[in-house]
C-alpha cells in the first residue's frame, strides 16, 4: 500500500503524502479544461436556443401588454372626461330650460292674475257705483220722509196748540228749516 501511495503521489508530481494544492497539479488540467469547454458550449446552446429567446419574448410581450393597457386606460380616461363634460352640459341645459319654464309660468300666472285683478277692479267699481246710486236714492227717500214727518209733526203740533193749521205756511216753514 505504501508503494502504491508513493507511486500515486509520485505520478501526481508531489513528494510523499502531501496533497499540496490540487489546483497546481497540472495532471488535472486537460481534464478540467476539456469538461469546461463542453459545459460552456452546452450552456451557450441552452441559452441561445431556448432560454434567452423565450425570456426575451416574455419580457417583450409583457412590455407590450403593459403599454397597451396604459394606452387603453388613457383612452378610457379621455372618454370619462368627455362623458363628464357632456353630463355637465346636459345639466346646464336642463337647468336653463327649467329656469325658462319657471319664468314662462310665472309670466303666465302674472298675466292671469293681472287680468283677474282688472276684472275684479271693474266689478268692484261697477258694484260701488251701483251702491252709491242706491245710497243716493235712499238718501233722497229719507229726505222726503223727513219733510213729510216734519210737516205732519208741525201740523199736529199746531192743531194741538189750538191753532188752525195752514198747510201752505207749514210747508214753507219746514222747507225753510230743512234748508238750514
Amino acid at each position: 500500500m505504501e508503494t502504491e501511495v508513493h507511486e500515486a503521489a509520485g505520478a501526481a508530481g508531489h513528494a510523499g503524502q502531501a496533497v499540496g494544492m490540487p489546483q497546481l497539479n497540472f495532471d488535472y488540467w486537460p481534464n478540467q479544461i476539456f469538461w469546461l469547454l463542453v459545459t460552456l458550449v452546452a450552456i451557450y446552446f441552452l441559452l441561445t436556443r431556448v432560454a434567452l429567446p423565450r425570456i426575451g419574448a416574455v419580457l417583450a410581450e409583457r412590455r407590450g401588454t403593459i403599454t397597451n393597457d396604459l394606452a387603453a386606460a388613457e383612452e378610457l380616461k379621455q372618454k370619462a372626461v368627455l362623458a363628464e363634460k357632456a353630463y355637465n352640459e346636459a345639466l346646464a341645459k336642463a337647468r336653463a330650460e327649467a329656469q325658462a319654464i319657471v319664468a314662462e309660468t310665472r309670466a303666465a300666472i302674472q298675466a292671469e292674475l293681472d287680468e283677474a285683478t282688472a276684472k275684479a277692479d271693474a266689478e268692484i267699481s261697477a258694484k260701488s257705483a251701483e251702491s252709491e246710486a242706491r245710497i243716493a236714492e235712499i238718501r233722497a227717500g229719507a229726505l222726503q220722509s223727513v219733510t213729510e214727518v216734519a210737516k205732519d209733526t208741525a201740523e199736529a203740533l199746531v192743531a194741538a196748540l189750538g191753532g188752525k193749521s195752514d198747510p201752505a205756511g207749514v210747508d214753507a216753514a219746514v222747507a225753510a228749516r230743512m234748508k238750514g
Binding site: M1, A9, A11, A12, D27, N31
Partner: peptide, 18 residues
C-alpha cells in the same frame, strides 16, 4: 487505498469522467 492520492486521483486523462 485510503490515501488522498491513489489510482483514482492520478493519471487522469482529458476524456475521463471525473
Amino acid at each position: 487505498s485510503t490515501a488522498p492520492m491513489n489510482e483514482c486521483t492520478t493519471n487522469i486523462h482529458w476524456y475521463d469522467i471525473t
